[in-house]
Design a protein around this nucleic acid. Structure first.
Length: 851
RNA sequence: GCGAGGAUGGCGGAAUUGGCAGACGCGCCGGACUUAGGAUCCGGUGCCUCACGGCGUGCGGGUUCAACUCCCGCUCCUCGCACCA
């Protein structure tokens, strides 16, 4: 019988499940290996082939590590709170608990059919009360630490829908559904003080093995900058405006101040004559969406009429408001030094404000000069060079002595708004009084605080969460305080449950603790985390913060959760665009037929009509009609072929253009592997106990060596190609050696585990053990089979290759020259010339310099 | 604008870190076997050239006996961030 993946894959999946082949236990006599996949959001649409791209890579590594004697923890679960289920609840009235449970069942089946070696006994689901009990408990810890607080935050408020929208529900300043205008509205929101971890989040990056691009993204997101606060007294008032600047050395050039329009001091300091203009400008700013603000960098602003005193010069300078100053960064106020800051320069030019040069070296009349040089027009500091930071330090010290400033470090990182006005999330375990003040958080015995059943999932219309409708739930006669209190009706964001799930996997059934120290001390940190790069500053930063908070509480040993991180590329598919109403190719379509096809264009038939289309490679998504369902692929080619294909197509981190022909090619390769082990319709095994030939040993040990090195470095595509080569060569040699074929089965096992189990047992006659081939010790490459006695090296004349020659590895230079001269093409190049010099690196190259 | 990464055949990609560029696979061309084939197998395939040979890793320089690889200067692409003081 030929290779029939559907039959053998089912058999082995059942074997692994019934024997608990991949159930992980703490074993102190073995090194541990914790491989983590970013758990999926279980959407109703099921898995698409984008998920297996990363999951396969980590599974290959896990299977390899088991064979290398590691005790592997490879869990999976579901990030099951989220908007799509909530949206379905609103639209169709289906409880998210129900639709999510269904989706999880679908996902589970699909993941099982891909042959992943997950420990299915450790599945977690963030929407499960047994799980979110601990998410809530950690929240109370954060609250106790002062890391969770009620703060004011801007939300996307849509008056027409009467609801707060998530960022991804707002497109171009309008609601995704209905296209209603969306405003920025200040609301009291639970907020996590991630900013107080900024320095540690920055420093922790130095010690972890992550893609450099991701570390850079986090560093920039955190945005540390050193500088100073400088106080500018307001003329005629007791107050002062504190600004943050990284260039205190330019303070003598500060010719005006700018406050963000939202700055708290604006109303108080604005002079009567300017009040109307200031109000109008504030209103204008509030109505402009973030997007509009970004689109136009034209400098606008209004003078408040108030004056501040420059503490360096003693001069009075105007105080303006302008939207180029961001309320949320620094102090929301700047000292403008138009001579040496491009933004200030543009503003000064647009509004005819004075420019004063205080650093020599540029022509500040024509452009801001941001380079270095000697200080000028700066009183006692004239002549001080800016190089080396001396000027900054000296001026900061001087201001500090005058009581007008101090050195500081500022971060871009803003606190994390940790509340959604939504039903489908973890209830925040807090009781408040009627004034909205927090009375207490719930204690562990009161957790989980479960979501109440509601009749209606739509937002309340007042901006409150749908939980506010559940009166019986939201009002509590509290036995602890003896008062009637109100529950928090906001829920946590999707990123809550995913910020610690990797810890719960270590001890998923623990009722007494979120995760025992014993379990986390053994399994943590994660040795390999594979997931999409889109989470580089979200989930991957939040998780690091929670880990640090838990570390501070003594609840975990490690300060960093993920020792090694790798991203997988996206799976891309061809997407067809036809002409939309605008005449441009901007309308996504799924053609009935492709009639003609060029590289980037095609002639297609859509609803019986022929038309031109553009073809682009884009990320698979349901909306674009270009998704490939793994179930369909598995039905035709098997999970093993899909796994091998995903590994082979491109390096792990590169995007993967979906090509069915390449998938088929890997299926064909697996068939060739099958035929290496079985003969004829009755599957007569080839393997016999004969001594392997030297040629066979060379092939197989070379493959062992290459595949081992490639799996270590996660170079899965080249590992597959090494196996292609070995399969081809062994087929030519007609290999029957049980030992050689055994090694082949083992090398194939991480990539195509079902096939390998079949080859190992039925093909080679090994008994089927509970653990299977994954636990058979990995073969070792013997060095003597890796080197050839003879090598083919290139022969160059004057640095240009003109032939090759086969030589003993240790051949002398004379022997090499003799052999080279015997090669006709080399002789031709040497004809009529005299050899001036010979460069010979044994086993590498022979280069003859001839004149 | 800032930051990061990249550019190798018709395509996806290799190249032990300075030593035969193009492994492996797709595609294409040709062949064997076959009643048949979505069974299987073999050969060819960077470009120019009948050939000898020449040219080739985004472009221009440089270092070197030797450069995809190192150095200098550009161009283009992709992805982030985007008035962060």
């Amino acid at each position: 019988m030929p290779y029939r993946p559907n039959e053998i894959e089912k058999t082995w999946q059942a074997h692994w499940a019934s024997h608990g082949s991949y159930v992980a236990r703490i074993r102190r006599d073995q090194p541990k290996f914790y491989a983590l996949d970013m758990f999926p959001y279980p959407s109703g649409k099921g898995l698409h082939v984008g998920h297996p791209a990363g999951y396969t890579a980590s599974d290959v590594v896990c299977r390899y590590k088991r064979a290398r004697g590691f005790n592997v923890l490879h869990p999976i679960g579901y990030d099951s709170f989220g908007l799509p289920a909530e949206q379905r609840a609103i639209e169709e009235g289906i409880a998210p608990q129900v639709s999510t449970a269904e989706a999880i069942e679908t996902f589970r089946g699909q993941l099982e059919r891909l042959g992943y070696s997950y420990d299915w006994s450790r599945v977690v689901s963030t929407a499960d009360p047994g799980y979110y009990k601990w998410t809530q408990w950690i929240f109370t810890k954060l609250y106790a630490r002062g890391d969770a607080y009620l703060g004011e935050a801007f939300v996307n408020w849509c008056p027409a829908l009467g609801t707060v929208l998530a960022n991804d529900e707002v497109i171009d300043g309008r609601s995704e559904r209905g296209g209603h205008p969306v405003e920025r509205k200040r609301m009291q929101q639970w907020t996590l003080r991630i900013s107080s971890y900024a320095d540690r989040l920055l420093q922790g990056l130095d010690g972890i093995d992550w893609p450099e691009a991701t570390k850079t993204a986090q560093r920039e997101w955190i945005g540390r900058s050193e500088g100073a606060f400088i106080d500018f007294a307001i003329a005629g008032r007791d107050e002062c405006v504190t600004v943050f600047t990284t260039r205190p050395d330019t303070v003598f050039g500060a010719t005006y101040l700018v406050l963000a329009p939202e700055h708290a001091l604006v109303d108080g300091i604005t002079v009567e004559g300017q009040r109307e203009a200031v109000r109008a400008y504030q209103a204008r700013t509030a109505s402009r969406s973030e997007r509009d603000r970004q689109a136009s960098k034209e400098k606008t602003g209004v003078d408040t009429g108030a004056r501040a005193v420059n503490p360096a010069t003693g001069e009075q300078i105007p105080i303006w408001i302008a939207d180029y100053v961001i309320a949320g960064y620094g102090t929301g106020a700047i000292m403008a030094v138009p001579a040496h800051d491009e933004r200030d320069w543009e503003f000064a030019r647009a509004l005819r404000l004075p420019v004063r040069e205080v650093i020599a070296g540029g022509d500040v009349a024509s452009a801001a000069y941001t380079g270095g040089g000697a200080m000028v027009h700066s009183g006692p500091f004239d002549g001080t060079p800016t190089a080396g930071g001396e000027a900054v330090r000296a001026v900061t010290r001087w201001l500090a002595e005058k009581g007008a400033g101090r050195a500081t470090v500022n971060f871009k990182l803003r606190d994390w708004t940790f509340a959604r006005q939504r039903y489908w999330g973890e209830p925040i375990p807090v009781l408040k009084d009627d004034a909205g003040q927090v009375v207490r958080t719930l204690a562990l015995p009161e957790l989980p605080l479960e979501l109440p059943a509601v009749d209606e999932y739509a937002p309340s219309g007042s901006g409150e969460s749908p939980l506010a409708r559940a009166k019986g739930w939201s009002t509590v006669d509290d036995a602890v305080t003896g008062r009637t209190l109100r529950r928090e009706v906001d829920t946590m964001p999707g990123s809550a449950g995913s910020s610690w799930y990797f810890l719960r996997y270590c001890d998923p059934h623990n009722d007494a603790e979120f995760c025992s120290r014993e379990a986390s001390d053994y399994w943590m940190p994660v040795d390999l985390y594979v997931g999409g790069a889109e989470h580089r500053v979200g989930h991957l930063l939040y998780s690091r913060m929670w880990q640090k908070a838990l570390f501070d509480e003594g609840l975990v040993r490690d300060e960093e959760p993920f020792a090694k991180l790798r991203h997988q590329g996206m799976v891309l598919a061809e997407t067809y665009y036809t002409r939309g109403p605008s005449g441009r190719f901007d309308h996504v379509t799924v053609p009935e037929a492709v009639l003609e096809r060029a590289e980037k264009t095609a002639r297609v038939r859509v609803r019986g009509e022929e038309m031109d289309a553009e073809v682009r490679w884009e990320k698979m998504s349901k909306r674009k009609g270009n998704v490939v369902n793994p179930d369909d692929v598995i039905r035709t080619f098997g999970a093993d072929a899909l796994r091998v294909y995903l590994c082979f197509l491109t390096p792990l981190e590169s995007d993967k253009p979906w090509q069915t022909s390449q998938l088929e090619a890997q299926f064909e390769w697996l068939k060739r592997v099958w035929r290496l082990f079985f003969e004829g319709d009755d599957d007569v095994p080839h393997a016999v106990d004969v001594e392997a030939s030297e040629a066979e040993l060379r092939v197989v040990h070379r493959a062992i060596d290459k595949v081992t090195r490639d799996l270590e470095s996660m170079s899965l595509n080249t590992a597959v190609s090494a196996l292609h080569v070995a399969t081809r060569d062994l087929a030519r040699l007609g290999t029957r050696s049980r030992a050689v074929l055994g090694a082949v089965a083992q090398l194939v096992a991480p990539l195509a585990p079902h096939l390998a189990e079949e080859l190992w047992t039925r093909g080679l006659g090994h008994p089927a053990t509970p653990g299977g081939i994954a636990y058979v010790p990995w073969p070792v490459a013997e060095a003597r089979w890796l080197v050839d006695d003879t090598v083919t090296i290139g022969v160059q004349v004057n640095g240009k290759t003109c032939g090759t020659v086969d030589l003993a590895l240790d051949a002398s230079e004379d022997a090499a020259m003799e052999a080279a001269r015997a090669v006709e093409s080399v002789a031709r190049h040497l004809a009529g010339k005299t050899v001036a010099k010979v460069i010979y690196k044994a086993g590498k190259i022979l280069n003859v310099i001839a004149r």
